[in-house]
Structures are given as C-alpha cells and as structure tokens.
Write a protein that binds this DNA or RNA. Structure first.
Length: 790
DNA sequence: GGCTCTTTCGTTTTT
DNA sequence: CGAAAGAGCC
C-alpha cells in the first residue's frame, strides 16, 4: 500500500500532530477530520462560508508538517487565478518552508506548464501562444473566409463551441463521425482549424486541456496529493485530466497511489452553461471509490435568518447531495423585502437604504454589495448612485488584457516572437493604418493559402505596391526585433509602442488618452511581472523528482536545449513568459478603483465573496429566475442555486427587492415577484412596504409563460397610478397617521426624504425622516409641512 | 480609409 | 433602450 518512493516515511511513523498544535487549533471537528485525513481519495462537501479555503490550506500545511509529503508531491488546482493566489498567500502564513516545488494554480495555468515542458511530446511549437476567445473567433472567421465558407451558415461562435466540445471528448477531426453533409463540412473545418493553429503556433483554451498522451505516462505518479477546489465547477475535460493525473484507470476505477481531495459544493454549482458538470461529484465518488466523505455545514459567515432562508430555498431542489448550514451567531436581523412600482423606484429606494446603512449604521461602502442577475440591470442603479454622489464600483466588463489597445500592443509583441502568428498579423498589419487595405490583405491571404504558408511569409509573393507595403511591414517587425534585442521587457514594450506607431496614433485620437494610459499601464504591468517572477536573479532550477527527470531526459534527448524548468518556465524569455501570462490571466477589469465604494456585480461574479450587507435586486419571474431557464427543470434548479449563492454572500443584512414594472429591451415589462421569494420562510422576513405603498399585482393578473396580457397590463397601470396617488391624497388631508415607513416625502426646506419611522398619535405624532441632502431628522407632523411623493 | 447610418440583438463567464 | 457590428457612402 505504501508506495516505495514515499520519502523517509516508515509505515510505523504515524503522521500526526498534537491536537493543540497551532496549525490545528480552532478547527471544528469536521474541519479537523478533513485536514488530517489519511491517504485515499476524499470528497469534502463544503457549504458556503464553512472555512473551505482554510481547510484546503491547512491540509497542505499538515501534509508538509507531518512529513508525509514534500512540496514537490503536492498539486493544488483552482479555477481562478485569484483563488490560486489567495491559497498561496494563506499557505505562506502557515508553512515556514520553501514551497517552490509545489504546483498550485488554475487548471489552465498548470496545463500550460505541463505543455511547455513537454511541447515536443505534445506536438506543439516550442513557444506556442494561447488564443483567447476573441482571437479564436477571429481565427475561425479568417478560416471561413479563406475557404469561401458562408459565415451565416457556420457562425464562428458555434464552430468554436463545436471544436471545443470535440476536444472535450478527446476527439480529433479524424475521430469525429459525420453522418450528414453539414457535419462533414464542420469536421472538415475542424481539421482546417487544427492545421491553421499548428502552422501558426497557437493553441486555444480547450487544446490546453486536451488529453495529450505523452503526459499520461509521465505525470500520473509524480503528484502524491492532488487537491481540487470548487470541484462542482469542473467540466468533463477537467475531470478527465484529473483522472489522468491521479493514475491508471482499470476496470473503471482509479488505482493510482495519488490521493485526490476534492472540495466543492453542489448547491453552488452555477456554471453548467459553460460546461461545468455537477455530476462529476457523483462520478468521483464512484470512480475513485471515495472512502472519506466529509460535510462542512458549520457556517461562520451569516446570521441565522439569512441561513434559514438559504437552507429553505435550496430545499426546493431535488438533485442534491444534501447539506444544511447552521450557525451559532444567532438569528440576527430579519431579511428585508421591498417591492417597488418600477425599476427606477427600486434604484431610488436602494440608494436611500445605502445612505442609511453608511450614515446611520456605520457600514463601510465596500461592505455593501448590490447583486443582480444580468449586467443590464446595473445601469439604472449606477445612474441613481451617481446622482446621489455615492462612490461605486462595477465588476465585470472589459478586462485589462482584453482591451483593444492592449491587444494591439500584445499582437506586435507576439509577432516579434513569432511572425507566423497570423491572428496577430492580421490584427496589426494595418493598425495604425499603413495603406494596406482589404484588397491587399485578400491577395495576401490568397497567396498564403496557395503557398501553404503564413501571411508573413507570403508577403514577398504579393506583387505591386501592395506587396511592397506588406514587405515594408515585415521589415518594420524585423527592425523592431533587432532594436529591442537585449533590452528589458519594459523598454521593449515602450519601444514597440513607439516604433509601431501605436503611441502616435492614440496621441492624435480624440479618445486616445485613456488608451494611452492603459498602454503605460501595460509597461508597468510587464515590469512588475518581471520582478515578481524574478527572472535572472531567482530562477534557480528546481531539482525535479525522478519521474519528472525521466520525462526531461526522454523529451529533451538529442536536443541542445535544456529542459524547461517547470517552476519558472526558464527557457521562456521574459517576453515569452509575459505573453503567456497575458493570455492566462485576463487581469483586473478595473485598475485600483476607489476602496470606499459600493460593490455592484452579477450574482455569478459574487461567488466566493462576502459582505456585511447585500442587496439582491430584480427578483422577478423572467429575470431571476431568468426566462431562458424556466423551460427545463435543470435550468430552474441552477437559477435556484444562483439565488442560494446570492443569499449566502450576506453576513448581517440582506435585502431582497422586486419591481412591478421594468424597462427591458426598450419596452416596459410587468413581472411577477420571483417564485424564490415564496420559497423563503415567512418568519425570517420583514416586508418593508407591505402592500400599502402601492398596489400589489396578483398572480392571476398575469398570463403564464407569455408575460402579461394586454388587458392585465392596463389594469396594472391603473393600479400603479392609484397606488401612487392615494397616500398623497390622504396626507394632504392633514392626517399624520397616513405617513408610513418607507414613503417618499418632500419638505419645503429639507427637500426629498424617506420616512424611516412614525411615532405617536394626533398632535404628538412625529416622524423620523431621512432626507437625501440633510440626513435623518425627527419632525413633528403637526408643524412640518410634508408632501407625500410616493 | 474612415466616417455615419442601419440593423440586430439582448443570461450568467473563467481561462 | 443602447451597444455593437456591418453596410454603404464620401
């Protein structure tokens, strides 16, 4: 059982630490069990806020502390660079040893490392570059054009998806069985695409993960402990990749000596739409004959009412491994529910509540999050926040390395490394413009296709003025390459920006200022990348273990090039390494935005984060759950998990809101409150406005499946109008009792405000009103002249 | 080659 | 409604 090459560990040495060892202190029994698991495969079902990252990092530290493993035996896989960095940072606080031999990173990052080291075995160019989604799309478009295929009939997006799913199933073009003519054409395109990638020395994301036979033999025994975070988000290919690393599969079972620790939460699986397969968890249990199955259900994040809501909601899902979160923090405040006539009112209310939270409850703005189902919802909220002068930060959108100007710069850099990269070539051959128009490019592509070579090499085949210009561009690249030889990466980029004309182009561009700043930021990013990676000074080659050393000898035989140092990618130049970095790490979408800002993001983007106060807005049928998910049960259950994720982001306060009408796709739509609201336990909830502030639409007012009928629409309109008018009328009659909490009022001196509370009767009646400009004030209703606005 | 008008489309997204 | 991409015009 004990593998022979386990270092210096006799079976009699029980791998333990005293229970009061600092490393283990403060762990609850389940966490402790997970951290100190013996060898063998394990599944940790880790609920939201249950200390998952702590368990993972402590587990690694424990393995090292007890001498069961050295850093080189451990691989830890995450989904995002952010998660990998966080784990690395936390581990560094737990372990005094050098961790350089440990493999910790994203699936793609680790695959990249493997493929760099064994590019020959994998049949890849030595300095292959990675295509991002944009590049891939562009490459496919180019391919279609080159072969006179109709882009209408074969949408590049769909083709990309087709190629990826083939790769996911381990199918090369020759393996795909085409039963109809259309399929035959798609397969032919798949082959052409592969040829094109091969010729250009590029690799797409799916290719990065492909089952490369060469790796199978060499790597399955190197890693003795394999830890996987967010296991519920793995797709088929990633799961296969894990199986490959874990060891031989015999009779459907994994028999290697590697121990796989998978940590995940099926209730937080929200990425089915991009290929994630929760079923991998069940498959893992079966195929790996998992002996250890631990649930972490103690939640250290949220107050009781919030957790009760989360638990009750997710109970409505049928396909679950089963889990119930609990806390000893007490029930806390009720979950507040707000309904408003329109999306605009929702935003207005939200802004006032945010102001109250920061001014009265002393919450920090960055501890307040606004979560929505779709990005389009942020617009209204942003504009209200902006008008109120509240700083906010929107997550999502364009990322740094995706920006056009940055991609242009990178394209030049890639061409310095590899002129055969047609994607990059096409991107910048005429940017900034050099008089190389569509016609010139078409004839270049024609020549390249006939000669079966790259665009770069076909330039000399094009005749006339066009050919001269193309060769001029090639010469420009050559001159740049020569000029930057021996220069630092930062200087290289600076030179390229200047020599390519990019800098001059953006200097004259009217909106070029921001772009110029991004290009400067690119230089800075490159410089700090070089420093962090420690090229030159810190790149000590690591002793590879026997297995890896064997691989090295095998693949690098008869080659003058030394093996790639797996830890630093040593044979890559700083520029090459930076280009890989740019491809694998999209970068933050917003450079250091103000810290003191309300956080706006989609529910998806909020996964893994937590906040003191959370607003989940737009809880309406058709929006959340989204229309497109309503048709099938799986879709609806994923929406529910999404809601579950959203709820469990909140520590102390949770607000749920829905609007009766909302501007969507340029027209007003009327929506029922989300069914998810009905699935929450009433005793945890507090309805802020009740039904008094405005009319409530009944479910019967709506037509199922098709939104709202015309008749019901006008009915809804009249209800809403009445609702807005009614309270104002009663207030005008001078009755203070008509004031209700949550109402919008207007005061001649203080302006707009919202009623926070009403106290007393008759002449003694007072109201606590929060004014937008003057803050909260107590006013005697007999004296103050207030008008109810809504 | 670049600008403007028109059309189309509209969940969620990391690498 | 508003962004983005494509078509068409100068």
């Amino acid at each position: 059982m004990t593998p022979s090459h386990l270092p210096n560990l006799s079976p009699s040495t029980a791998p333990t630490l005293p229970a009061n060892h600092p490393l283990l202190r403060g762990l609850n029994p389940e966490q402790l069990a997970a951290v100190t698991l013996p060898q063998g495969h394990a599944l940790i079902l880790a609920g939201a806020g249950s200390g998952k990252t702590r368990v993972l990092t402590t587990r690694i530290a424990w393995l090292l502390h007890t001498g069961q493993a050295s850093a080189g035996h451990i691989m830890a896989v995450t989904f995002t660079n952010k998660a990998a960095k966080e784990m690395q940072a936390r581990l560094a606080t737990l372990v005094p040893f050098q961790l350089r031999g440990m493999w910790m990173g994203t699936f793609h990052g680790l695959c990249n490392r493997l493929l760099r080291a064994h590019h020959q075995a994998a049949g890849l160019a030595a300095t292959f570059q990675i295509l991002d989604v944009q590049d891939q799309q562009a490459a496919i478009k180019r391919l279609l054009k080159q072969h006179n295929m109709d882009a209408e009939r074969f949408p590049p997006k769909q083709l990309a998806w087709f190629f990826a799913s083939c790769k996911e199933d381990g199918l090369r073009p020759k393996d795909v069985v085409a039963t109809n003519p259309e399929m035959q054409q798609k397969v032919a395109l798949y082959q052409l695409y592969e040829d094109q990638c091969q010729r250009e020395g590029v690799v797409d994301f799916a290719e990065l993960l492909r089952d490369h036979h060469a790796l199978r033999q060499h790597y399955q025994q190197r890693f003795r402990y394999l830890l996987v975070d967010e296991f519920q988000d793995t797709n088929r290919l990633q799961y296969q990749w894990l199986k490959l690393l874990a060891g031989e599969s015999e009779g459907g079972h994994i028999i290697g000596s590697t121990s796989v620790l998978a940590v995940g939460d099926d209730d937080q699986s929200i990425y089915a739409f991009r290929g994630a397969r929760v079923g991998n968890m069940q498959d893992f249990l079966r195929e790996f004959k998992v002996q250890h199955h631990i649930k972490l259900e103690r939640n250290y994040r949220s107050h009781g009412h919030i957790l009760d809501c989360a638990n009750a909601l997710i109970e409505h899902n049928s396909q679950r491994l089963g889990k119930n979160l609990s806390t000893d923090q007490g029930a806390g405040e009720p979950v507040r529910i707000q309904q408003t006539p329109t999306d605009l009112d929702e935003a207005r209310w939200l802004v006032e509540e945010v102001q109250a939270l920061t001014r009265q409850d002393g919450l920090q703005r960055q501890e307040i999050a606004v979560l929505y189902r779709s990005n389009a919802q942020s617009r209204v909220i942003e504009s209200r926040l902006f008008n109120a002068g509240i700083p906010y930060r929107v997550y999502g959108g364009m990322r740094f390395f995706e920006r056009a100007e940055v991609k242009h710069a990178l394209a030049y850099l890639r061409l310095l490394e590899n002129p055969q990269d047609d994607t990059s070539y096409t991107r910048v051959v005429n940017f900034p413009t050099r008089g190389i128009g569509t016609r010139s490019l078409e004839s270049l592509q024609q020549q390249a296709r006939q000669a079966g070579c790259s665009l770069h090499n076909a330039a000399s085949l094009v005749s006339g003025a066009a050919g001269a210009k193309l060769q001029g561009f090639n010469a420009l690249l050559d001159v740049m390459r020569e000029a930057v030889a021996g220069q630092s990466l930062g200087d290289t980029i600076a030179h390229v920006l200047q020599a390519s004309g990019l800098e001059a182009h953006y200097q004259t561009d009217k909106e070029g200022q921001e772009r110029l700043e991004n290009l400067q930021e690119l230089i800075r990013a490159a410089e700090s990348f070089v420093q962090q990676e420690g090229f030159g000074k810190d790149a000590i080659a690591l002793p590879l273990d026997e297995t890896a050393a064997a691989v090295t000898t095998a693949t690098a035989a008869n080659s003058a090039t030394p093996a790639v140092d797996l830890e630093t990618g040593e044979t890559l130049s700083p520029l090459q390494a930076f280009l890989v970095h740019a491809a694998l790490e999209a970068g933050d979408n917003q450079a250091q935005a103000g810290q003191d800002a309300v956080q706006l993001m989609t529910v998806h983007a909020s996964k893994g984060l937590e906040f003191d106060a959370v607003f989940i807005v737009g809880l309406e049928e058709g929006l959340f759950p989204h229309d497109n998910a309503l048709s099938d049960k799986d879709g609806l259950e994923e929406e529910r998990r999404l809601m579950y994720v959203a709820i469990t982001r909140a520590r102390q306060r949770l607000y749920l809101s829905h609007a009766h009408s909302r501007m969507l796709h340029g027209r007003t739509s009327f929506n029922l409150p989300s069914r998810f609201l009905d699935e929450l336990p009433p005793h945890c909830l507090h309805h802020l406005l009740g039904t008094a502030g405005f009319a409530k639409l009944e479910r019967s007012d709506y037509v199922r499946g098709g939104g709202i009928s015309a008749g019901a629409q006008s009915f809804a309109h009249s209800l809403l109008e009445k609702a807005v008018a009614a309270p104002a009328a009663s207030a005008a009659a001078g009755s203070g009792a008509a004031l209700r909490k949550g109402q919008q009022v207007f005061h001649a001196k203080f302006g707009e405000g919202q009623v926070l509370a009403v106290e007393g009767q008759g002449a003694d009646a007072r109201a606590h009103i929060h004014f937008v400009r003057h803050g909260a004030k107590w006013l005697a209703l007999a004296i103050a002249k207030l008008t109810v606005v809504a």
